[in-house]
Design a protein around this nucleic acid. Structure first.
Lengths: 195, 195
DNA sequence: TAAAAAAGAATGAACGTTCATAAATTTAAC
DNA sequence: GTTAAATTTATGAACGTTCATTCTTTTTTA
């Protein structure tokens, strides 16, 4: 038990080391030697926990994506209606990204680069299933536009990544007012207009 | 003159080679040796045209970003009003991204990774100045929401990158109808609602 | 023939990964 | 309950390769 605990800690230290290196220098900035050094471990030890560098990065991706989804759906209560539920998810996602900036930056880096296996990417996407269910529910009730789930995601969620990037670089700081504006824009883009 | 022409061609061959390697394997997939081979040139020759690998990638970024902006503002006629002008820009951008998928994929890869110098990134952003002018114009006329330019960009333009990624992976094919829907979502998100 | 451009070979450093070995832990015997 | 064998876990050095870049030489151009 103590052993298992120790193993888990070492595994997580390796994942954390990889995360911090990737966000600062991309995947080519995260060499196995550097990862090992930061995690206070021999390079060879990494291979007791991960098959390869690719496996290490894939698992990091799944880890972070899952944590993100867990945060997003922490108080998931679809019975409260589409608008309230979406708003909760949206702000929970924003809160996660603001709290865990490194993780958020890593995820947005992964989404547009060939760094992650396509299979792993697909697996990660499944963590967002509750959101896709909500799309369907909203469309049945004629609250959400009759768009493909990806189009709804592109406008409902994806822009957050851009805002977080700008926030991280200090270009466009986020506060509660800006967040409210952003949410309003998201809702206006995906919801059926009331005119 | 013939020499200059030849030089320009060789330079462009190098940029093209880099582009195709980066989009398929990220920046670490684009080794100088591979770039040289694809451009039918010795590795040493690259250094007659570019200072370093970083310089090569930076210049590629500026090249592509400029071409993108040129396409976006090709028929730029702000005197036609905010809505028409934005719609023209939006569809011109979409057309460029659909026609030059490799370039579009490269740009979206650059935007979320530390692959490009911050200074170069800033320089590239300036190519989009006409769009930012349009934001101001729209806000003065109370047509566009009173958001920061980045927030307007996040919802007006940025989602396109996501849609193009999905299109490229064959996950969510784009046709004229989907494009119209996407534009509608963009406009609804950034424009003052008519209620 | 002088200068510029390009080539290929060579550079040391860094890469991901593996190897033989050493330390730590568990198991088994008494 | 102690000890010794067996097994697991971890190591640092070393592997062959590939990296970005440079050096020397050859080819092309003016």
């Amino acid at each position: 038990m103590a052993l298992l605990q120790k193993s888990i800690e070492k595994r997580e230290a390796l994942l954390r080391a990889t995360l911090s290196l990737v966000i600062n220098g991309g995947i080519q900035g995260a060499s196995m030697a550097k990862v090992a050094k930061i995690a206070s471990v021999s390079p060879a030890t990494i291979y007791l926990y991960f098959e390869s560098k690719q496996d290490l990065v894939n698992q990091l991706y799944l880890n972070v994506k899952t944590a993100f989804a867990n945060a997003a759906f922490e108080n998931h209560t679809p019975e409260e209606g589409v608008y309230i539920t979406f708003k909760k998810i949206w702000f929970a996602m924003a809160a996660y990204k603001l709290k865990y900036k490194e993780e958020a930056s890593f995820l947005s880096q992964c989404d547009n680069s060939p760094m992650i296996d396509e299979a792993t990417r697909q697996e990660g996407l499944r963590a967002l299933d509750p959101l896709f269910d909500l799309w369907v529910m909203g469309q049945k009730q004629a609250i959400l536009k009759d768009f493909s789930p990806y189009l709804l995601y592109a406008y409902g969620i994806y822009p957050m990544a851009f805002l977080m990037n700008m926030e991280s670089r200090g270009i466009n700081p986020l506060n509660d007012d800006v967040l409210e504006e952003a949410f309003q824009a998201a809702w206006d883009s995906i919801s059926v207009s009331k005119s």
